[in-house]
């Protein structure tokens, strides 16, 4: 099967952007397999539109929107292989040296995964992608006020180590 120039360009973009977008996907999902699933789903959605998206100054921004859209839509309902831990770190992550202790990163990861989707996405977009509140609002499709509220609640939950209980029963593993 022949590969069109557009497809070849898309493939190059996937190989170049994959590692950095996988990092974002990992923060949005909390585990590597689900991150790969989300990332591939997003690329597959973008592929039919690549002739247009490929001309954008920053295709990553479009990919971010697609990833967040997928993440906050169906995966909030169907979470096949996610494990929502019941062992959220009591006492939270405040007061710990997050940047130097691998164990503390596990606490942070656990905390992120326990957050409601929108709070999790808002925290990641604001503090990992370094987007402004307005940019985050555009990506999430909510108001700037909504971004402030979701980010604030997410950070508060991370600080006190308290997140809402999962509403979906998990398979026994």
């Amino acid at each position: 099967m022949s590969v069109s120039p557009a497809e070849s360009d898309f493939d190059s973009y996937v190989r170049a952007s994959g590692p950095r977008l996988k990092r974002l996907s990992f923060l949005l999902t909390g585990d590597l397999d689900t991150a790969e699933d989300l990332l591939q789903s997003a690329y597959a959605k973008v592929l039919p539109r690549w002739a247009k998206v490929g001309d954008y100054d920053n295709p990553d921004a479009y990919m971010r929107r697609v990833m967040v859209s997928i993440r906050t839509s169906w995966w909030r309902r169907l979470r096949g292989r996610e494990v929502l831990t019941a062992d959220f770190p009591r006492g939270g992550v405040a007061g710990r040296d997050l940047a130097v202790d691998v164990g503390e990163l596990d606490y942070l990861l656990t905390g992120l995964r326990a957050l409601p989707r929108r709070q999790q996405v808002a925290v990641v977009l604001r503090h990992y992608c370094d987007l402004s509140e307005a940019e985050t609002a555009t990506v999430m499709g909510i108001s700037v006020g909504g971004v402030k509220s979701q980010t604030s609640k997410g950070l508060a939950a991370l600080r006190v180590g308290h997140a809402p209980s999962p509403t979906i029963e998990e398979p026994s593993r």
């Binding site: 923060l27 940047a99 990861l109 990992y128």
Partner: peptide, 26 residues
């Protein structure tokens, strides 16, 4: 501190970058 921690955390995804995902995406 949160920015730094998230950056470090995200780098864990680099451990999983051995697979060529292009065929699966197509």
């Amino acid at each position: 501190a949160l920015d730094r921690a998230l950056t470090e955390l995200a780098e864990r995804a680099d451990l999983d970058e051995s697979v060529d995902r292009v065929p699966a995406i197509h």
